Simulated scan of single mutants.
Amino acid sequence: MDESPPQEPRSLRERKKRQTRQRISDIATLLFRERGFDKVTVAEVAAAAGVSTMTVFNYFPRKEDLFLDRIPEAAALFAGAVRDRAPGEPPLAALRRLTLRLLDERHPLGGVGETLPPFWRIVAASPALRARAREGLDEVETALAAALTEAASADPGVPAADPVLLAALTIAAYRTVVTASLRRLSAGDPVEEVAEDHRARLGSAFDALERMTG
């Protein structure tokens, strides 16, 4: 007779893993904000979270990923917007809708929010974080290019723009809009005013992308 303990449902196991990952990231972020990214070790994060250093690295391959922990989510969101778009919806329309939703939800990836300037000041102060942030943009761009390539192959109605170029232009445009909003927030401009300008800039950016792709 098999006396091994019953297996947890996959959904429960996955939920526990997500909760553990989030707890480690939250504690790391708190420590980094208090003391600076370069002055906190992974071992200290592990001790504060009550896990082993190996456990931390199981969830976050690099120390920088403890702070920039939304890179995989960003890649999944941008690629998913293309893959999961409504039938007949152009990819750029789906991406426009995604970015507006992130803005409306004040999502951390949306580019507008009171907590964002302090977060990005920490990134700016660390060469390692700045390098990882650039890599993260490349990862999002690569994921989006793959989704756009699939869309062009599967749907003859999708404009025949170079998917790699379109992904690069889309991410560059979005980064430009977000950077402008972060500068205004850092200068003390009201969040709602910045959000309105952000919305208008997004509209202009996607209008330009749509004109370029015909």
Rank of each mutant, 00 (worst) to 15 (best):
Q22C: 09
E89C: 03
A76T: 12
I24P: 00
P163E: 05
S186Y: 05
E114H: 09
R18P: 06
F57Q: 07
L68C: 10
V158M: 08
K39H: 15
E44Q: 15
P127W: 12
V51Y: 02
P117V: 03
R62Q: 12
K17N: 09
R121M: 15
E89N: 08
E139N: 07
T213K: 02
A168V: 04
R18Q: 14
T142C: 10
F32T: 01
A94S: 07
E114T: 11
R23E: 14
D38N: 11
E105S: 11
D69N: 14
R106N: 10
A46G: 04
S204W: 10
R23L: 09
E8T: 12
R96H: 08
R132P: 02
L12F: 12
A167T: 03
K63N: 05
Q22A: 15
V42W: 04
P9L: 13
P156D: 03
R134M: 13
K17V: 11
A128E: 08
A46K: 05
V194A: 06
E141R: 06
D26A: 15
R134E: 15
G157K: 10
A81R: 00
R130C: 13
M1R: 12
H198Q: 01
S181F: 01
L165T: 15
A93G: 06
L92W: 00
P108M: 05
K39P: 06
E135R: 06
P127D: 06
S4C: 08
P90T: 02
A47P: 02
F119C: 06
A49S: 13
D138V: 13
P190E: 02
G110S: 06
I71E: 02
I71V: 15
T41K: 05
R211D: 09
I27W: 00
F67A: 05
S153W: 13
R201H: 04
D104R: 14
I171N: 00
S52L: 09
A161Y: 04
F60T: 05
I27P: 01
R121T: 11
T176F: 10
R23G: 06
L109G: 00
L182M: 11
A49W: 06
T149A: 10
V164W: 08
T99I: 05
V123R: 00
A145F: 07
M54K: 11
T213E: 01
L185W: 01
R175K: 14
S11I: 15
A47M: 04
V158N: 03
T41I: 04
M1N: 12
A160G: 10
D65F: 09
L100W: 07
E192Q: 09
E135Q: 12
A48C: 05
L77C: 05
A143K: 01
V51I: 02
E141T: 08
V177F: 03
D207R: 01
L165K: 11
H107S: 03
G110Y: 08
P127L: 11
T213L: 06
E150Q: 13
L102D: 00
L144R: 04
A151Q: 05
L166A: 00
G214F: 07
D138A: 14
T115K: 14
D155T: 02
R132I: 06
E141V: 03
I24F: 02
L144W: 00
A173L: 06
L209Y: 01
Q7M: 14
K17M: 12
E44L: 04
A125K: 12
E196Y: 06
F57I: 08
I122Q: 10
N58M: 11
S4K: 13
R97C: 04
